[in-house]
Design a protein around this nucleic acid. Structure first.
Lengths: 228, 228
DNA sequence: TTATGATTCAAACAAACGTATGAATCATGA
DNA sequence: TCATGATTCATACGTTTGTTTGAATCATAA
């Protein structure tokens, strides 16, 4: 088999990079760390991927391609089942965030490591990464935005967009900060060990997200008349 | 006045560092960028602060000291007003998150720049920063945790802790991602310019947070008796 | 005015960074 | 078996990193 060796090398690099970027961030991870942990030559990254920038893009693409397609598939099915009627907001939220969280149970799809990397990276300082993610995410984002608009016709669109932002934030933190937040807050969540943590995180987070999405609309101070 | 010169230098360094760390992150910002923008000599940071690590710690301390004391003061007053009764959850949430957000309206206290820096840094990869923040935040966190426990006696404590995490995440994202998320989502929030954005963000975020905090408790699947 | 301690400055340091190179090694088709 | 292209390897390149140094400059008290 001709490609086994280099595929192994590529995959080992991607795995190490995924883990190290998750732990130390993009700028905080060096090529020597990556190739060292992957037990490959330093030049291997540039040979197989071209550059460090291209490497992290491949790290994301490897996981996001499937994730976003799966999200689309789930939403397709929901809309088909609804038969013209708007889909329930909680189902849309679950199609987006639930699909993401359930991916973490699949170790072959990156598991918690990728989930936490993704959570952290949405606030990653390096601009080209955010730009890349914006591009990768655009289609699926627009799909879900439209679905929510239809599901909540009585809610102003700007409000929905904002709440989607809030949901993204809560989710990213919940997953990125599994230890980061524990460090920040210094609170131990007793009761559960790391194994079944995800089983319980999903329903917990979902309750929170739906509660926030469906919360009473805010009351603004004497509003500037806004005709958009 | 003997110290005017070096106070100016110190303060200029802190301002530039705050802005640059917010934009490019800790690892992504070099001493030469900081001293260059502050128009001071490269060696000034090490002279006045000792190291880059000590610098960012001072950047945070300058703002967090006041913020966390103010949070305590607000909570003190709420508990005094309640006179033995538990404080309403929404008031506790506002004392913690509202105080933070309102700080951003005060340019002399860092304004949006510090707010966004803080939002980003809670997921900052560099471990010593998170450790530092954990220490700086511990006292105030414990106070608010206890207050929420008393305010919501019927809710399991673990549930409250989780929801506090989610609230932290939603808030951090809302502020950190003012442009980060816009990039990721590629959605323009029409209607509002950057000036009054904060006026509207606060009630919006508050509604979302309270809605999430008060959401129905999650239903767990028939708990897996998991003997792995 | 002069002496003193604080601050600023230009310059240099070793270390680590991402990347590139050319030779060595490998697997494979002819 | 040999030639070919793919991959790995040790090594080096030029920058950039955070930090240090010793002299120059400053503000102030005596």
């Amino acid at each position: 088999m001709a490609e086994i060796r280099n595929v192994d090398t590529r995959e080992r690099i991607l795995d190490s990079a995924e883990r190290l970027f998750m732990t130390h961030g993009y700028d905080g991870t060096s090529m020597r760390q990556i190739t060292g942990e992957a037990a490959v030559n330093l030049a291997a990254v540039n040979y197989h991927f071209g550059s460090k920038e291209a490497l992290i893009q491949e790290v994301f693409r490897r996981r996001l391609d499937w994730l976003n397609e799966e999200r689309m598939r789930v939403l397709d099915r929901l809309e088909a089942d609804a038969g013209g009627q708007p889909v329930k907001p909680s189902l849309i939220v679950d199609a987006f965030f639930g699909t993401l969280l359930r991916m973490a149970e699949d170790e072959a799809r990156g598991g918690m490591t990728f989930l936490r990397l993704l959570g952290r990276t949405l606030t990653e300082p390096s601009e080209f990464i955010r730009a890349f993610l914006a591009h990768e995410y655009k289609v699926v984002m627009d799909r879900f935005k439209e679905a929510l608009f239809r599901a909540l016709p009585e809610v102003p669109k700007a409000e929905i967009v904002w709440r989607f932002h809030f949901m993204l934030g809560a989710t990213s933190y919940a997953i990125a900060g599994t230890d980061a937040l524990r460090l920040v807050t210094d609170w131990q969540i007793e009761e559960e060990d790391s194994v079944d943590r995800l089983d319980r995180l999903v329903p917990r987070l979902m309750s929170f997200l739906i509660g926030g999405l469906r919360a009473p609309l805010p009351h603004f101070e004497p509003v500037a008349v806004d005709r958009s």
